[in-house]
Simulated scan of single mutants.
Amino acid sequence: MKVSNRHRARELVVQGIYAWQLSGNAIEQVELSMATSNDMKKVDTALFKRLIRGVGEQADELDIAIKPYLGRLPEELDPIEKAILRIATFELKECIDIPYRVVINESVELAKTFGAQESHKFINGALDKAVRKFREHEQ
């Protein structure tokens, strides 16, 4: 199966946000590190920059926005789950040009790739609830 440039961008963003969460380095430093240590030719760099910068700037607000749909505290999340949910919440709130079904599907696929065995089910359930608030116009 051919992987899209947008999916590759999201994969790098998950890795970057994960590294940022654990290292505490500036998001700009993490972005630069990800961009220089990966082949960006087959990556949607505009989406990569939009997501990594947006999540880095709005992480606390994104945690508050998704919290009611988790069934647990954001602090209790696995770092990969937290990264994926932050990215998805940012996309649902700020990237109205991306259909919510794409956001959810991409998030589930990222959880299957990077997350724990059953994390994709948790991600899907939380986002399915959240989308009703963030994208009620698309329902």
Rank of each mutant, 00 (worst) to 15 (best):
M1R: 14
V3R: 12
R6N: 12
R6E: 10
A9M: 15
E11M: 02
V13E: 02
I17T: 11
A19G: 06
G24V: 14
A26W: 10
V30K: 00
V30M: 00
L32W: 09
L32F: 10
T36S: 05
N38Q: 08
D39R: 14
M40F: 13
M40D: 11
K42T: 10
T45D: 05
A46E: 13
A46Q: 09
L47Q: 06
F48M: 09
L51A: 08
R53P: 00
G54H: 08
E57Q: 08
A59P: 00
D60V: 13
D60T: 13
E61F: 12
P68E: 08
Y69T: 05
L73M: 13
E75K: 15
P79N: 10
P79D: 06
E81H: 09
I84E: 07
R86L: 10
T89G: 11
E94C: 01
C95Y: 04
D97P: 02
I98N: 01
P99C: 04
P99W: 04
R101S: 07
V108C: 04
V108M: 03
V108S: 02
A111D: 03
A111W: 00
K112E: 13
T113I: 03
F114Y: 15
A116D: 12
S119R: 00
F122D: 05
A126K: 05
L127I: 02
D128I: 04
R132V: 12
R135I: 15
E138C: 08
